[in-house]
């Protein structure tokens, strides 16, 4: 089970504003899903290593050679609050 405080904490971590109604629905739905997920918490996994990648590649690198990128106009093209030179963000207090 998951409580209201946890829902609010996680929503803040994920930067998601939830209305009080959404919070309650979220608590119920997440609790329900976690009940199913809890199946894996009961499994015997002693000595089983984790899998991050199903592929066994290593050392995939690129040479340190410049590649041309975007012009500033292109870089700023899709930004909602672009200034002449950069990406605007509101005050941080």
């Amino acid at each position: 089970m998951i409580d209201d405080e946890t829902v609010r904490h996680v929503a803040r971590l994920a930067r998601l504003r939830l209305s009080p109604d959404e919070e309650q629905v979220m608590r119920e739905e997440l609790s329900g899903i976690l009940e199913h997920i809890d199946a894996i918490r009961a499994m015997d996994l002693d000595g089983v290593p984790p899998t991050t990648h199903v592929i066994t590649l290593e050392n995939v690198v690129r040479p340190d050679v410049p590649v041309s990128g975007l012009t500033r106009d292109e870089a700023l093209r899709e930004a909602a609050h672009a200034t002449d030179e950069g990406f605007g963000v509101p005050r941080m207090d």
Binding site: I2, T6, V7, H9, V10, A11, L13, A14, L16, L18, E22, M26, E29, L30, I33, L34, I37, I40, R41, M43, L45, V48, P49, P50, T51, T52
Partner: peptide
């Protein structure tokens, strides 16, 4: 939003080993 909440929760401090860590091992 639901999945981001679920995923954030599964990675959060105190839950990682129980959820994300175990899931990676089931994957093995």
């Amino acid at each position: 939003k639901r999945r981001m909440m679920l995923g954030t929760f599964a990675l959060a401090s105190g839950y990682y080993d129980q959820y994300y860590g175990r899931a990676q091992r089931v994957r093995t």
